[in-house]
Design a protein around this nucleic acid. Structure first.
Lengths: 210, 210
DNA sequence: TTCGCTTTTAACAAAATTGTTAGTCTTATT
DNA sequence: AATAAGACTAACAATTTTGTTAAAAGCGAA
């Protein structure tokens, strides 16, 4: 059973990997099952053997990716015993690093998931409760700090949107952002490091008391 | 000639309008020339008669949209005799309003244009010089204000990326951003108004001296 | 009206694309 | 070795999709 399973998993995961690449690069409509099969090194009948249809294969990829979103949100929450400013800095940096390590993910989500209402519903059901919990905790902590005069009483929800916007957009629009502006800062990785620092600064500035 | 031209333009523009809608909604690969023709109320042979190929029709739509980008950038520059803070506020708001009036444009650009290297080159050629001029002027003005102690010496390029990120991302990811967070602020339009104010505040905060 | 030009239509052709199926090969188990 | 189960292949089928073409219709000018 183990070796048989290995064999199965081998081609199955090869198809999955090729499918992920193809769907990320070309989207659902642009992806070709034949290309996926070729990239995976199998006949395209195998793709149907393992996944029945292009649609089911796509769903499989999507659901895997959607789960990553909740994970990164939770992992960015960080240690509860760090001071607020440090926790936020860490959260921003972890989020930035996650996007940096998955540079095509945002575009894929926005393109392929957000245009399918039933997927959006599924995502919101999965994400909303955890987002709200994270945000309620953060808001409470901000309010406590503010009560002691240690920071401004900023809106946690708005802050989260700020962070995600600042971190994600430059990756999504990378070719223009870097091409038209970023290249003035050196190579692309250098530019990214600079952006990361800048985003931390921008957000913490909103919290800082004058 | 006038009436003939009118007749010609009529179906031609109807095809163009239907094509824009279809390409915006489904992307190049997902768009169907038959759907476009049907939506325009003509046989699909007419589409080929006027535009030869799906590709040429697409190019026509894209080039029109690319030109809008330079326009909005310039229009956001604003009156040179306003004080810096007011000019920046105005620029942010104009940019936000433009995106708000063209909510599908960012996704279209990111999806359909940025995945085509030759289009990216064309865009950068068109945009880079004007962006650089705008940025150089802005940077100079910031530096002057900073020299007088009226604001911080912030990096104009980073500021522009901040503005575009904050303004554009919530529209691109609208279904999640509003679904998971924004709905706490009321209806969608209310949320947007709130975001607009928030973005202005975030940016001006970076300039303000403590 | 007739001529010539553009616009429009209907039918067709070619290619691409997803999916199926019948049968073969491999491999673990008995 | 025989068998059974799953993995695999090659060929085929059905549909979709882009694009063409020959002929008809519309229309202004001579």
């Amino acid at each position: 059973m183990d070796k048989a399973q290995n064999h199965l998993q081998d081609t199955e995961t090869r198809i999955l990997q090729a499918a992920e690449k193809e769907f990320f690069e070309k989207g659902y409509a642009g992806a070709r099952t034949a290309s996926i099969a070729e990239a995976a090194g199998v006949t395209h009948a195998m793709l149907h053997y393992y996944f029945r249809t292009k649609d089911k294969l796509f769903e499989r990829i999507v659901s895997g990716k959607i789960n990553m979103l909740a994970d990164i949100l939770l992992s960015a929450v960080g240690d509860a015993n760090l001071p607020l400013e440090e926790r936020i800095r860490q959260g921003i940096e972890r989020h930035f690093d996650f996007i940096s390590a998955n540079r095509d993910l945002p575009r894929f989500i926005v393109n392929e998931v957000l245009s399918r209402p039933e997927q959006v519903d599924a995502m919101n059901r999965n994400v909303q409760s955890i987002v709200n919990e994270v945000l309620d905790n953060l808001q409470q902590e901000i309010d406590e700090y503010a009560a002691k005069g240690l920071c401004r009483r900023v809106d946690a929800r708005m802050l989260l949107i700020d962070i995600v916007s600042l971190n994600v957009f430059p990756f999504m629009a990378a070719p223009i952002v870097y091409g038209a502006i970023g290249s003035a800062y050196g190579d692309y990785e250098e530019f990214l490091a600079r952006r990361k620092r800048e985003n931390v600064k921008t957000i913490l500035e909103k919290l800082k008391i004058n």
